[in-house]
């Protein structure tokens, strides 16, 4: 299944997502947790720790800046995970999808 968790700031999206991901993984499912928040904190709730959360955010930024390790697009989903995901507790694969660093972009 593919589940998107949305809601108002502070409602508990990140916390809920992380617990759902880990419970599914404990039940034997292969789980990929994607942090699509522009202020990505999911790693902290999953339990991968502060440094790893920041490392994955940095990897995402390097990709934006075209300093990534590949000069081609990832061949497929698995390739993408190999390059950008980290394995967290209970075997949950975790990657950061977005963080934007321009404080005042031109377009609304």
């Amino acid at each position: 299944m593919k589940v998107a968790v949305v809601g108002k700031g502070g409602a508990g999206k990140t916390t809920t997502s992380s617990v759902v991901a880990r419970v599914l993984a404990r039940g034997g499912a292969s789980v990929v947790a994607l942090d699509g928040d522009t202020n990505p904190n999911l790693g902290l709730s999953l339990g991968v720790g502060f440094d790893e959360t920041e490392r994955l955010v940095g990897m995402r930024q390097a990709l934006d800046a075209d300093e990534g390790d590949g000069d081609d697009h990832a061949a497929d989903w698995d390739d993408l995970l190999d390059r950008f995901a980290s394995t967290g507790p209970d075997g949950v694969q975790f990657a950061v999808v977005s963080q934007i660093d321009n404080p005042d972009p031109g377009c609304p």
Partner: peptide, 25 residues
């Protein structure tokens, strides 16, 4: 979010206050 946190305020704001709860996140 941090997507466009200062949209329209860069060059206008004379002060910025960041509201922070002292939790890990």
């Amino acid at each position: 979010g941090t997507r466009q946190p200062f949209l329209g305020w860069a060059g206008f704001a004379d002060s910025v206050v960041v509201v922070i709860e002292a939790s890990a996140k």
